[in-house]
Nucleic acid binder design. Structure first.
Lengths: 144, 144
DNA sequence: ATTATGTATGCTCAATAGCGCATAGGAGAA
DNA sequence: TTCTCCTATGCGCTATTGAGCATACATAAT
């Protein structure tokens, strides 16, 4: 019934969950939990809980590869979800620019297309430091 | 920022509010508060509160005509809201069939295109009784 | 077997949501 | 003005939510 649809909206009513879906849409591929954690800069347990809710709303699905778990958008024949995804994809880029910058950097750490490091690793900390500096420089130039 | 978008999803995450939007989409015209109350069969104060939230999320707008207030969908140039409305419009009809049957009957009580009776009036009670009986008959026939 | 690591889940707490009820605004009628 | 009627809102209550923390679970490596 209608609950199915309000549930989907509820799943998307949280900022973090909306960012996750937006990230998955933008990436166009399945993302490992730790990649999402690092891209959003949120805690592992909260990301995990939010992923569970999105899965419950049937918006994403998981794929387990040993101890690694990746999540991807769950497509469906029904028009409703398609339009919702389109709506989210049409959100202005600015709303999640930082997430995307971080994801791009994080994906750069993949080996043979696979995530090989956990969340908040030292390696990631180093990369994050670098791109954060770039952002700051950008900011200075823009506000000059 | 992203809050604007999560706010819209939050506004739609409630069953009653989703029904209201669905009803407005289906009706294709502005509806008086008491018409919405009677169509949904919800209390006046709750409908009013929900309308306020929908308005806060910038999904609907009000038009005051004396002591009568009607609400209509708020269109906008931005793609996001358009897609969201399309998504809701694509929801299967069955989810709010009863609402629509009641609205149709309620609109039949308009005079010169205007709502002229308050919510839960005797006149409405009579009409409601009639259409409820029809629904029951339908139900019996279907489950025979 | 033991340990390490990626992910999930209880638990608690503060904040928020939605309902019912009573009542307040506010515009028109008497 | 006073009354009536359509709509909005403050209050109290209960239920739910999301965050942080610790910890459990599961798989891989030693």
């Amino acid at each position: 019934m209608i609950e199915k649809y309000s549930l989907i909206f509820k799943a998307l009513s949280d900022k973090t969950r909306l960012r996750i879906i937006h990230l998955l849409l933008w990436a166009g591929l399945n993302l490992c939990v730790c990649e999402i954690v690092d891209s959003l800069g949120e805690s592992q347990y909260n990301v995990s809980k939010h992923l569970k809710e999105l899965k419950y709303a049937d918006l994403i699905e998981e794929k387990k590869m040993g101890k690694w778990v990746s999540y991807g958008l769950k497509s469906s024949p029904d028009d409703f979800k398609k339009k919702i995804f389109e709506a989210i994809a049409s959100m202005p880029d600015e709303v999640t620019t930082k997430d995307k910058i971080r994801l791009e950097a994080r994906l750069g750490l993949r080996k043979e297309g696979k995530c090989v490091i956990g969340f908040k690793s030292e390696q990631w900390a180093a990369v994050l430091k670098k791109i954060t500096k770039i952002e700051e420089t950008d900011h200075v130039q823009k506000t000059d």
